[in-house]
Amino acid sequence: MPLTNPWLSDPMPADQLPQQRLDERILNLLSSQNMCVLATAGSEGPLATPVRYYSLDFAVMFTAAPRSPKMRNIAADARVSVGVFAPLVGLASSRGAQLFGEARMLPPGHPERDHYWDAFRWENEHAERGRSLAEPLSDTLVVIEPNRIVYTEHWLRREGFAARQFWQRPPLSKPSEETAN
């Protein structure tokens, strides 16, 4: 039987993408999808919840009812994992990412909220709920800025790269002595 994608056969390549190419692929995935699975942990154990999200750079964000199980879990333990994936047709089309970080709840008036809010398409949710588009959503915004991402794309094997790629948030640069004085 002929192989439709011979490059999917073993041995699997192990090379990592250059950082700029990996960044671009992750950003493309995050901006081309709008559903994720949010994993939290609470007193009753793990919880995986489908969530509609919006993205800004590597951050994903959503709103939720304050008393929902996911919000209770985040309040108790902000460590979360988020799974984002593209529709799967076969192994060659397998593409997704696992984001790991801490969820931050930004209520209205929080000083960091405006930075993210401009990318949050609240009008969609207002229209779905029959709310006025003249008044922005006042729900708490949940933002996850990942510390690390595991990105998987089997198509990369065709180019000689590993299907699984690892992204780490760059460390914050320390001010040099010249700028501090």
Rank of each mutant, 00 (worst) to 15 (best):
N5C: 08
P6S: 00
P6A: 01
P6M: 03
W7S: 03
L8C: 06
S9I: 11
M12I: 09
P13Q: 02
L17D: 02
P18A: 06
Q19V: 10
Q20W: 11
Q20D: 15
L22E: 02
D23E: 14
L30A: 07
S31V: 09
S31A: 14
S32P: 09
N34E: 15
N34W: 11
M35G: 00
C36G: 07
A39I: 02
A39G: 15
A41Q: 15
A41H: 15
A41N: 15
G42R: 07
G45T: 01
S55H: 03
L56S: 08
F62A: 01
T63D: 08
T63H: 07
A65C: 06
P66T: 05
R67W: 10
R67S: 05
R72F: 06
N73A: 02
I74D: 07
I74T: 05
A76S: 09
A78N: 08
S81N: 06
V84N: 00
G90R: 06
R95T: 09
G96S: 00
L99D: 04
E102W: 07
M105F: 01
L106W: 11
P108N: 07
G109F: 05
P111Y: 10
P111V: 13
E112S: 10
E112Y: 08
E112D: 15
D114F: 08
F120N: 01
R121G: 07
H126D: 13
A127P: 05
G130D: 12
E135L: 10
P136W: 08
L141I: 07
I144W: 00
E145W: 11
N147C: 12
R148N: 14
V150P: 05
E153T: 05
E153D: 15
R157V: 00
R158D: 07
F166W: 13
F166T: 10
F166M: 13
W167Q: 06
R169T: 02
R169N: 08
P170S: 14
K174H: 12
S176I: 12
E177M: 14
E178Y: 12
